[in-house]
């Protein structure tokens, strides 16, 4: 999947991010992230991206912002209960997930959205976290 390769590239850039400072990188990266994901997935910048476990269908576009699967109101034609002309985000997500390598991910229970992370870059946070984990791993094996 392009997206997974992309995240390892981001991680490889960790020395660069920490040199620039994650805080300073936040603004330009957020800009790019918003453009890319906005264009491709109609991203809402919730700041805690789970696209990879939702078949690349952004759950924040569900009018109820469900992050754990479809509500009981999905129409017989697969459209949304709230917006009858829009296909249900989760019907799309389920279809999308079938085509993904990590198709089990959609079955994980997702935590509630942390509203304080809204409008921040999920890419940088995930990368910083992965880098931290990698370092912890190194120092524990060393």
């Amino acid at each position: 999947m392009v997206y997974t390769r992309f995240s390892s590239l981001f991680l490889a850039l960790h020395p660069f991010w920490s040199a620039v400072g994650y805080a300073r990188a936040e603004k330009p990266v957020k800009f790019v992230e918003r453009q890319v994901k906005g264009l491709m997935f109609d991203c809402r910048m919730c700041g805690q991206c789970i696209l990879s476990s939702t078949g690349m269908s952004c759950p924040m576009n569900c009018p109820k912002q469900l992050r754990n699967g479809p509500c009981g109101g999905v129409r017989a034609n697969g459209n949304c209960e709230v917006e009858p002309d829009m296909p249900c985000v989760w019907v799309k997500a389920w279809e999308g997930a079938q085509a993904m390598r990590n198709r089990q991910a959609i079955l994980d229970v997702q935590k509630p959205v942390d509203q304080s992370l809204r409008e921040s870059s999920a890419w940088l946070r995930v990368t910083a976290q992965a880098a931290r984990e990698r370092e912890n791993l190194r120092s524990s094996t060393a």
Binding site: G69, P70, G73, V74, C88
Partner: peptide, 16 residues
């Protein structure tokens, strides 16, 4: 709701 699409997802959703 076993009676709403996506039907394949519904039992998984119960598991969840």
């Amino acid at each position: 709701n076993p009676f709403a699409p996506p039907f394949d997802f519904r039992p998984h959703r119960l598991a969840k």
